[in-house]
Amino acid sequence: MALVELRNISKVYRLGEEEIRALDDVTLDIEKGEFLSIIGPSGSGKSTLMHILGCLDTPTRGTIQLDGLMIQDASPRELARIRNEKIGFVFQFFNLLPKLNVVQNVELPMIYGGWKARERRERAMEALRRVQLENRSRHRPSQLSGGQQQRVAIARALVNDPRILFADEPTGNLDSHTGEIILGMFRDLHAEGRTIILVTHDAEIAAISPRRIEIRDGKVASGGGT
């Protein structure tokens, strides 16, 4: 059994009379330990696919199995728990909370996971060591460079030891050199055996991943078969 199994997933938005098929009958398997990139122009449905894979959204039709759980009918509460325990997100705009310092940002998922304060602090510092930012743990996000902020975001995504790591245009807001460092980090994480899904519109960036899926008009255009 694959880590993620999508079967005939459709997502339909209604805009007045009009029906918009953001995803149309997508079937996809993702194996454990895979490094996968989802590419496609904006409006292709790749973000919708990522949201459904990342349990931020539920499909209109079809089934989705993640790590042995069927999640197409899960309640918002269950989805929140799955996001907390099994999924890590890295966003284009870093999305760190500006009022919290670096280590508090990294601790955030564990707060919702109900960890004890001491364990939280230990694990957060460990995750920060992993991205070589342990000496910046007391800084505010605004005091860090873009690359450093993205590394904090990666540390936050890793801190709950998720089954899948999502990266949504992780280099979109960085200069090419810093982008290289971040992408190198994902490569290293993949080498450690993590499952990584990289969402991008840039074929060049997608080139670092062994498997590429192209989404066009809500359908898998290429790379769907395993």
Binding site: G54, L56, P76, R77, A80, R81, R83, N84, E85, F89, N95, L96, L97, L108, P109, Y112, G113, R156, N160
Partner: peptide, 12 residues
């Protein structure tokens, strides 16, 4: 949104 993405429930 961030809090929800990292696992905050509606109730939380």
């Amino acid at each position: 949104g961030i809090r929800k993405a990292v696992g905050a429930t509606t109730g939380g």
